[in-house]
Amino acid sequence: MSTTLKPAPVQALTTIFHYHAHVYFDAATREQALLLRERVAQRFAVDMGRLFEQAVGPHPCAQYEIGFEQALFGSLVPWLMLNRLGLPVLVHPNTDAELADHVDHTLWLGGPLALRTDSLAVSLQVLGQAAPRPVVINTAPLQDN
């Protein structure tokens, strides 16, 4: 008896509203995280989230979020690959599927961290949300990447 796996359905790129990059740090790497935060804000038009000095939501340690539009993916993510100052960075899309976005649809720069996924929704619509929180640009880039 053979087992045939049913392929997962193809998902359209139009299901992606925008992206997040989460930069993780601890007491020893806090200054690097702040420097990276400053460098990103100087170079990219992003939604720079607040600095969390402790674990919050699915994130297991101190972190901040960088929200960005799809058009920025091709420049911001490669820049982070080269300039993340050794910090772990989680990049994920924001779709209706919050849990899958953080677990299955991820890109890790540096080693992955174990996320606490019990707080993530399988579907935002089930919770009564039409979409993830929008990206609101709050940086004013001064220079090219």
Rank of each mutant, 00 (worst) to 15 (best):
residue 125 Q to F: 05
residue 75 S to E: 15
residue 29 T to M: 08
residue 100 A to T: 05
residue 103 V to E: 09
residue 85 L to D: 09
residue 100 A to W: 01
residue 117 T to Y: 08
residue 112 P to S: 10
residue 32 Q to P: 01
residue 72 L to M: 14
residue 60 P to C: 14
residue 101 D to S: 06
residue 98 E to H: 03
residue 114 A to L: 12
residue 65 E to K: 10
residue 63 Q to P: 00
residue 83 N to S: 15
residue 76 L to S: 14
residue 125 Q to D: 04
residue 4 T to N: 05
residue 22 H to Y: 15
residue 22 H to I: 07
residue 54 Q to T: 15
residue 112 P to H: 10
residue 4 T to E: 10
residue 69 E to Y: 10
residue 103 V to S: 06
residue 48 M to F: 13
residue 71 A to T: 06
residue 55 A to I: 03
residue 105 H to K: 14
residue 80 L to Y: 01
residue 2 S to I: 06
residue 102 H to A: 08
residue 91 V to Q: 08
residue 40 V to G: 14
residue 13 L to Q: 15
residue 47 D to L: 05
residue 113 L to W: 12
residue 24 Y to S: 08
residue 74 G to S: 14
residue 71 A to M: 05
residue 49 G to V: 09
residue 51 L to R: 01
residue 108 W to P: 05
residue 20 H to Q: 05
residue 116 R to M: 07
residue 136 V to Y: 00
residue 101 D to F: 04
residue 58 P to Y: 09
residue 21 A to P: 06
residue 32 Q to S: 15
residue 116 R to V: 07
residue 10 V to E: 11
residue 145 N to Q: 06
residue 114 A to R: 13
residue 88 P to D: 05
residue 117 T to H: 09
residue 128 G to M: 04
residue 107 L to R: 13
residue 115 L to H: 14
residue 53 E to I: 05
residue 91 V to A: 06
residue 68 F to R: 12
residue 11 Q to N: 05
residue 134 P to N: 02
residue 67 G to A: 11
residue 70 Q to A: 11
residue 18 H to W: 08
residue 136 V to C: 02
residue 24 Y to A: 09
residue 116 R to S: 08
residue 6 K to V: 15
residue 90 L to W: 12
residue 101 D to W: 05
residue 52 F to Y: 14
residue 131 A to C: 00
residue 112 P to R: 08
residue 144 D to K: 03
residue 135 V to M: 01
residue 99 L to K: 08
residue 69 E to V: 09
residue 127 L to S: 09
residue 86 G to N: 01
residue 98 E to I: 00
residue 3 T to D: 08
residue 35 L to D: 11
residue 30 R to F: 09
residue 75 S to Q: 15
residue 116 R to E: 11
residue 131 A to P: 00
residue 134 P to I: 01
residue 123 S to I: 02
residue 136 V to M: 03
residue 101 D to R: 05
residue 104 D to G: 10
residue 140 A to E: 13
residue 69 E to T: 11
residue 30 R to S: 11
residue 113 L to H: 12
residue 93 P to F: 13
residue 46 V to A: 14
residue 115 L to N: 13
residue 134 P to C: 04
residue 143 Q to N: 03
residue 23 V to A: 04
residue 51 L to M: 14
residue 88 P to F: 03
residue 99 L to G: 02
residue 35 L to V: 12
residue 50 R to A: 11
residue 6 K to T: 15
residue 136 V to G: 00
